[in-house]
Structure formats: structure tokens, C-alpha cells
Design a protein around this nucleic acid. Structure first.
Lengths: 198, 198
DNA sequence: ATCTTTGGTGTACGCACGTATAGTATGGGG
DNA sequence: CCCCATACTATACGTGCGTACACCAAAGAT
């Protein structure tokens, strides 16, 4: 919940972000108040002041509609460290954010994963590439998925068989991983795109 | 020059865009006036009205700082049709714009090129990929460049030899193109990244 | 020769907007 | 227990801001 914010504050921040994306400019204090049904602009103003004090907004005093959202306008979070067995998928908490218009790869929540090694080289995914994935816990046969294997996130092709689930690397020198459905690793998302730098 | 706009109007539009990127919210009429040294807000207001009439801005009447830039906030133009021997590299004129934060791939002007065929498959660039290029008319040896060959844009590795320039595909089934420096095709840009969808 | 477009100056109106003052209610921590 | 943070209502002040009115000047186009 964007850490350190109250529920209301998070809601206000989210509204400002949505408004910004929709209109191209931020809302006024009174527009925020109107959206939440506040009968006094003071209520909205207080929340925005709190958000500023906590570092989420920068407001130019006295100037109408002069609200800058400091943290992410939007973007795709790059999968960072894995805390308590689960990786961080929220944009707000991500260490690195890919400045790419979400929605470009379709609808849904997305995250990115930096590829290490050449286990997917036959799919033309090379070391250092950022793979874009839609966050979901299921996959269709043949799709490339990010799965959680022993506290590590890896990219594999998802191949369900009659009794087992196979996870295929795209590299002739590597063997598929075979698991029974009950011990199947958790699917974090399916591949929807790729970004390569340099 | 963003087509159909006077020089001043283009300057105003560009300023608004820059201001927006810098602050996260649009400038007021008076801020525009101040930037250009206008002694009356009227001058700036007129230009913004003209820009609105021509479809480049959407302004909410009476509301301070409520200016929406209709055309590209920013982005990377996807190389479209080739007019009069030269492709369109301007964001403003591009048919398709990649909603990707420029600056992600470094500094400079960028454009994108949709790859057809698998002539660069050994570089793990496959059919349908969008290659991101920095616009420049020179290249270092070994860099992947977009060149203009007979009214068509193609991607090749740039290999200058003693007396000739070689353009290598990354596919063993295809032969390099060899040209003398004087008849060398025009370089449009060098590869800096790649975006793959689905 | 006149009209339109472009690019300005100067002044002024009126209201939308940020913000201040004052007050109510709730809930958690020392 | 009191105190502070949270979350509001109600009213009001001052002004930044969009915009209108009036006017000037140069450059094309008709």
C-alpha cells in the first residue's frame, strides 16, 4: 500500500496519478475534494500536504494545479530482490522502473525480469535482456513463463504433460526440469515482450 | 517543423512540452509569456489558442494550467513510409509512436525500425522486432546500422575495410554487401536497443 | 488598395483556486 | 489520562490566472 501512507492518502495519490494520466495535467485541490465527496477543500488539501511531507508529491505553494508526482508516473517494475520468498512486483516498491508505457504490451499488470545466462538463447533471448511479463499464476501450454524455483526466478517454457509438468529451457545443452503438479513451482507471469538495451 | 505551425507556434509548443517533462504539470499562460519575454499574457494566450485550433493542444476554458498536449508527449517514432527517398524520423509526423521513455537508451534522437525477415537472426533479432536506433550518419566498425539501400531501409553490421565498406547480415545463408566508399549508402542510425512484443 | 494572418503591447474584469482560521469526531500510543 | 495524528465540515481572504477589450504594426494574399 505504497508503504508509510494511510489508506486515504494512498487513495488520493492514486487518484492524482490516474487524473494525470487521463488529462495530462494534475487536478486542483477542489477537484480532488469533489472526487471523494469532501464538502470542504480543506480535507483534500490536508491529504496532499501529508503526501508532500512524506515525499510523494511536490507542490508549488499558491500555484493552482502545480502538483508534481515525485514517485513513479507509471512504468514497469523491474523484478528486484526477493523478500520472504516472494519477489517485489509493485511499481511503488521497485528499485528500478522501466519507463515504458504499460498498455503497450496489452492490459494487465506487468513486471520485467533481467535475464541471466543464455538458457533461452534459441528463443533469441540473450543475456542482459529485460523480459516483460504479465503477472498471472497460470499459463497456456507452450508459453514462456517466469517461475519461482528455490527462491530464484527463472524463465522457462511451460509444457504440461499427462502426469507431470515440464519446464523447458531453450538451449540444447540444458535439460528440461520435470516436476509433479503438486510440487509445481509458482508461476509469476507469462512473457509478453522483451526490451534490449545497447 | 511540426507541419502547419508557424515558427513561433512551434516554439511555444516545444516549450510547453519541455516544461511538462520538467515539472510534471503544464505552464500557465503567463509563464509561457515570461519565458518568451512577452510583456503581455495576451501574446502567449493567442499562440496557445492557435495551437488548440490546429489540434495540438486541448485547453479547458477558464481553468488555470489546464493544458493538455494532444500529440506526442514524447516517445520514439517508428520508421514509417519513405517519402521522397528519405524516411520520416520526426516524432510529430510519425504514424506510430513507441510509448517508451527516450533517455532510457541514452542521449540523442532516436527512432525505431520494424524488422522484416531473419537476416539478423544470429544477433538474436527476429522477425517483427522493433529495433531502436540513435539517429546519426556515421558508425564505428562492428556496430549494427540502419542504411538506406535503394529506397529501402535495412539493418546490417557496418564493417569498413581498406578500400571498401562491407555490410554484413547476421545470417550464414546471406552474403555481405560490398560497396566502395563513394557509393556507400547513407547511414540513418546505429542500433542502441530492441523491443519485442508478444 | 483592402483584407487576413501573424505577432505583439497595455489594461482590466471576475472568478477559480490555494490557503488560513475555527471547530468536530475518532482512535492509537505513551 | 492526555496528546497527537487522522479525517473531516464550514466559511472566508487574497490573488494568480484565463480571458476580454482596445489598439498597433508588418507581411502576404486577393
Amino acid at each position: 500500500m505504497t508503504k508509510g501512507l494511510t489508506k486515504r492518502q494512498a487513495e488520493v495519490l492514486e487518484f492524482i496519478n490516474r487524473y494525470l494520466e487521463e488529462h495530462g495535467y494534475p487536478p486542483t485541490v477542489r477537484e480532488v475534494a469533489a472526487h471523494f465527496g469532501f464538502r470542504s477543500p480543506r480535507a483534500a488539501h490536508d491529504h496532499m500536504k501529508a503526501l508532500q511531507k512524506k515525499g510523494y508529491l511536490r507542490v508549488r505553494a499558491g500555484r493552482p494545479r502545480a502538483v508534481e508526482v515525485v514517485r513513479p508516473r507509471s512504468g514497469i517494475p523491474v523484478l528486484g530482490r526477493i523478500a520472504a520468498g516472494l519477489p517485489i512486483l509493485a511499481v511503488e516498491e521497485a528499485e528500478e522502473v522501466l519507463g515504458l508505457d504499460p498498455g503497450f504490451f496489452g492490459s494487465g499488470r506487468f513486471f520485467a525480469l533481467r535475464v541471466r545466462g543464455d538458457s533461452m538463447i534459441e528463443e533469441h533471448i540473450q543475456d542482459g535482456d529485460l523480459v516483460i511479463l504479465r503477472a498471472q499464476d497460470w499459463a497456456r501450454p507452450g508459453e514462456i513463463v517466469a517461475v519461482l524455483l528455490e527462491d530464484e526466478v527463472t524463465l522457462k517454457r511451460y509444457v504440461p504433460r499427462r502426469d507431470v509438468v515440464e519446464l523447458h529451457p531453450a538451449n540444447p545443452r540444458l535439460e528440461p526440469i520435470v516436476v509433479t503438479p503438486d510440487q509445481a513451482p509458482r508461476i509469476l507471469g507469462v512473457m509478453r515482450g522483451l526490451v534490449r538495451k545497447a
